[in-house]
Amino acid sequence: MVKNASALQSPEENDFNYFYDAPGAVPGTLKIDPNAHPPEIVLIDYNPEGACRVHLKQPEDVTAYMVSASVSWVDVRGFGDEDILNRLGQTFKLHPLVLEDVVNVPQRPKVEDYDDQLVIIAQMVVPKPNGVGFWREQVSLILGKTYLLTVQEEPEHDCFDPVRERIRFSKGTIRERGADYLAYTLLDSIIDGFFPVLEDYGERIEDLENEVVSRPTPKTLDKIHQIRRDLLLLRRAIWPQREAINALIRDASPLISRDVQIYLRDCYDHAIQVLDMVETYRELASSLMDVYLSSVSNRMNEIMKVLTVISTLFIPITFIVGLYGMNFKYMPELEWRWGYPLVWSIMLSIEAGLVYFFWKRGWFRPSA
């Protein structure tokens, strides 16, 4: 079976398996999801003097901007039209294997050098509005000399709005730099997008710690399993992404200036921080499972202790009433006037003695 997910997925809907071709498939074959969003092409063209934002109807409309001296950011959102995607590949002269990696998602984050183009595959995570969980999406960046082509799975969610605002209002030095700096800025936004998601998981783990200790339930176990699964997905997203950024720093490319490589080091540091947080939270989630099992075992021990005390209290009096319940004719106490009060006195004395003994042993105190 060929894995393909052209729509943005949450961890509950997709197990983050990477795409693979069916045996014997023709290289460069595109697998289009019939439910995928139709492509939306947005161009942001800018230079130190100004910036403009244009919605392009056809992929060929970008040609006039690509030959200019300004930087052109072509953002394609959606995979729902194979014809437009093929025409986009022809316009940017993309290798068929590049277009396959861009469209057939999800791919493992990586970097590939095609001489006049640098292809960067990344995974982006976006926190859900309710603050529980996240969406994930593949973002492909094709870097040219004066342009950057980005391809996203859908038009609704991304973490690039701060970059768009910086270009629009000329904040910082982004409009004074080239397309390689724009690629770094988007990569840095993708990596930084992991931090809000991980902060939410950190708070959820803290809440679970209190719940596991004080009132563990089967739902608590489900929550632990879900967090562990989500953190595994985040790890599978950030681990190869760190390697890809390291490749950009290590392998010199004429499309990336020395100055931008220095900025990429900071991006690499952020990726390491994200990976450290993921590993730490995974260890905490694993320890929560041990704490949960210990809490359940302690509760079971408390229940068994109560039942044991009750059973022990009734064992001696059960023996006595059973003894005098035997149908023997000659039992001396049966004819005695004070036999019945004496038996009651003996049973109550035994019960009082057992209760005092258990109290002295600390059996009536709750376990720490």
Rank of each mutant, 00 (worst) to 15 (best):
L264Y: 07
F194L: 04
I262F: 09
S189E: 15
Y268T: 01
D259G: 09
R235D: 01
G193Y: 02
S287N: 15
S189T: 08
D276C: 13
L255A: 01
P240E: 00
K219W: 00
W239E: 02
R282A: 13
I191R: 02
S214D: 15
S287I: 09
L182N: 02
T185I: 05
P216V: 00
F194Q: 01
C267I: 00
D251L: 09
L187Y: 12
V197S: 04
L187V: 00
L186W: 04
Y181R: 08
M277D: 14
P254E: 14
D188Q: 05
L233M: 11
D266E: 11
S253I: 05
R242K: 10
L208V: 06
L275D: 15
L275C: 14
A183F: 14
E209M: 03
W239N: 04
A237N: 06
W239H: 12
E206I: 09
E209H: 02
D269C: 12
I249H: 14
I238R: 11
A247P: 15
I191N: 10
F195W: 10
Y184Q: 03
L208P: 07
V212I: 02
L231W: 04
L187N: 09
R215Q: 10
L208M: 00
A247T: 04
A271L: 08
I205W: 00
A247R: 14
L186R: 02
V274H: 10
D259R: 10
I191L: 11
D222L: 08
G193T: 05
E243K: 00
R242I: 03
Y184L: 04
S257P: 02
I191H: 07
L234H: 00
E199Y: 07
